[in-house]
Amino acid sequence: MIARLSAISFNTFREAVRDRVLYNLIVFALLLVATAPLFGEISIGVERLILVNVGLSAISIFGIIIAIFIGIGLVSKEIEKRTLYTILSRPVRRWEFIAGKYMGLLMTLVVNAALMTAGFYLALLIVSHGLGKDDAALLVAVYFIILEFFIVTAITLLFSSFSTPIFAAIFAFALFAIGTFAEDLRNFAALATGLTKWLTTAAAYLVPNFSALNVISQAAHSESISGKLILLNTLYALLYSLTATAGAVLIFERRNLK
């Protein structure tokens, strides 16, 4: 089973690399490293702050765009090229195909984020003329961004398991946008009463909560993030993505591929 999952994952990763997905790194590197010295010219006293905000936001946005645009084609492309039938004719279960695709895309995103983080730290080194303890703490924000990728990849895969690529992209982007406002939904649920309270609470749990994972602002201001929060956010991201991936598996198991 592990061999089959690894094979599908590595192939997904290889395919993404072959699709020149990692080219975004050049854009990112240019954006940050080449413009880093300019931050000192256009702002006073907040060079590091701007760099952290821009850098971490770019890592997050690039990753989410990649997750959605590759994720929507993971299943449909295999059907279109008819390679899915070849894969499933081998001793590969459908759930293994979905799980393998999920892990492969996640691997692509983690490698991508790691390389972007390296570029980000290089820019930080240029701006700050050295790296300190506060800069190391920024890795927590990067880790939370990767947790976001866990969820986005899972929901994209869920939508792509039953929808066309264009609709899967729309659904995934919409859910991502709603998820960034999840805090508002929670606040609304807390103040509502009766049936509205039940419905909004259910909706607040159903949509992914990205606001809890966005600590870019705190990281930029060197505010510490507790170990408990890191642990709980990890647990939440893993469980939510497991829920969405399980949903994708269930739909795909029942899908008529003939």
Binding site: Y205, N209, A212, L229, L232, N233, L235, Y236, L239, Y240, T243
Partner: peptide, 8 residues
Amino acid sequence: SVFSLNGV
């Protein structure tokens, strides 16, 4: 995930 979100 519901319990962990409450914890978060």
